[in-house]
Design a protein around this nucleic acid. Structure first.
Lengths: 200, 200
DNA sequence: GTCTATAACTTGATAGAC
DNA sequence: GTCTATCAAGTTATAGAC
């Protein structure tokens, strides 16, 4: 999912010269993802976003408001992603698997950040993650028509996301970061199994 | 993985009447899992373990020491689990998949707690998780002899663990908590595919 | 819109009584 | 071994100047 910045008015991923509001959300999401909830303090977020704490609190009156900001961004990005998956030329399943590993896209960041919030027992964040998962599962089921296989595919997607986001780098070459060709093999396997089961 | 308390001297899962040390580790792991790293303060751990903060700090001189305690417990439990998987009558793969979902066992708790620590950018915790994953992957590869399939199986296992530990409960019936029969279907699917690929 | 200063509270850790 | 202070540092949030 390459970031394709087009129209500044509706931009929701703020890398460099975006509105202060978006830069703050970006900094918060990144800190959550990189260093966990404990490190994502207002002080740290303000510093990363290049504003003072007071400046930050002008835009987001509380930490709760900041969290809502991340959740809103996630919702927007998931909506876009669902559209992208649906219209993918390689097919929804292959597209989903290939984009499951966290690569630093705006969606990945929002997803990882939300995951951290969910693990800090924020139930709104949990709901947002489930909603995203439900949407993706729906597309896969629609595509394969096979509930068991669809679940397996979703679990593989979850596994890829978990491993890449939470266990980066590996101690042994055996389970080292999955390479592009590993993913190709995985997609081939899924494609084969899907075809076999479809042709009953 | 049912807890089978036998010999108090070597016990590493402390539910009720264990040593204070073990009760403290238990409380810490549980708080980490239930409410996240931020909630797992010395104050909260002490209260949950039924001691004062001073009492806690007599057993673990610092928070770092507490973390090491959880990591040591995980290592012990993973070692036991690896032995259990290897000697499972239903076969290593089926056993692994069936025990991937977090059900509240001592191993699950230690695993989830360590995962939270890893996400708080504790590199020792990360290493411990990778070591566990490497051990499991080794068993699966040994069992199937098929690297691509083994990766897919590990990813499904990771996906099950992630979903059950981090996204408990579901908004729609479609992706509701996987039932026992769902897991059966999953195991059947994996068994079929394994047989097909083995018979080239 | 952005800043500094500061209030109110929490956190990890120490000291010393029992 | 366990407790009650107590401390310094950090955290969220407010007030008010610019």
């Amino acid at each position: 999912m390459p970031d394709t910045p087009e129209n500044p008015p509706i931009d929701t991923a703020a890398p460099a010269s975006a509105s202060t509001r978006d830069r703050i959300i970006d900094a918060f999401a990144e800190l959550l993802g990189e260093n966990g909830e404990r490190a994502a303090t207002l002080d740290a977020v303000a510093a990363a976003a290049g504003v003072s704490k007071g400046g930050l609190l002008y835009h987001f009156g509380s930490k709760e408001a900041l969290i809502e900001g991340v959740l809103e961004r996630l919702a927007t990005l998931v909506e876009r992603d669902v559209a992208a998956i649906r219209s993918s030329p390689s097919g929804p399943v292959a597209h989903l698997i290939r984009t499951s590993m966290a690569t630093g896209s705006a969606l990945d960041k929002a997803l990882v950040a939300t995951s951290r919030l969910a693990q800090a027992s924020n139930s709104t964040a949990r709901d947002a993650l489930r909603a995203a998962n439900d949407a993706w599962y729906g597309i896969v089921l629609e595509s394969t028509g096979d509930p068991v296989l669809s679940r397996a595919i979703m679990l593989i997607s979850d596994g890829l996301a978990y491993g890449s986001a939470f266990l980066p780098g590996s101690s042994t070459p055996e389970t080292a970061e999955l390479s592009a060709s590993d993913i190709d093999d995985l997609v081939d396997l899924i494609t084969e199994v899907t075809a076999q089961r479809a042709g009953h």
